[in-house]
Amino acid sequence: MGSTNTAKVDRYKNNFLKEVEENVEEGDWVRMCMQCGVCAGSCPLGPHWDHPPQEIFMMIRAGKRDEVLASDSMWMCTSCYNCIVRCPRELPITHIMHGLANYAHRLGVAHQENPTRRFAQMFWNNVTKTGRANELKISLGLYFMDGFMNGIKKSLAMKKIGIGMFMTGRLDPFGLVQGRGCKGSGDIDKMLKKAFEIEDHRKGYNS
């Protein structure tokens, strides 16, 4: 999608705020921020971000396109909604953050190393394959994300839970070779394709 990215830059002539408003879910709320910072202080994951939401909004207004889209901030949102509840301007901050993440991802410029993003991608790939989440594959994929030795360590640490899940039938040991699918997986592909079409159309990706 690199070419889409370039096209966007050209089309919005450095007006990143406008680009966000037109392409990011709830993006037209960004202009309403008055920089009070209550969202930044309300976020339970706040200490772990590059930029708190209000700063991201200011960066958008200042046209810092590359920095914003490559930021890990929006990937850190856990949807606790503290920021939305407290925002004196009623900005749907949680939604904007997710919208920004989604947009960066679509443009192919999203933060590469962020584990949340990688996990999200992994989950997507996994669930869209058969229409059902393969717990074992997701877990192992997640554990071994940062290399083999780390993977072993994490798996051992999670051993008890894994066994527990297995005993209660929540984890299929054969999933590694062949997970359970669902009926009519072709229909799922169709559904997803249609969903993509609708979203692309709505956000103007086709034009």
Binding site: L17, R31, M32, M34, Q35, M58, R61, A62
Partner: peptide, 9 residues
């Protein structure tokens, strides 16, 4: 702000 006037401190 609604009219897209940008405010910068």
């Amino acid at each position: 702000q609604r009219k897209r006037v940008t405010f910068t401190k």
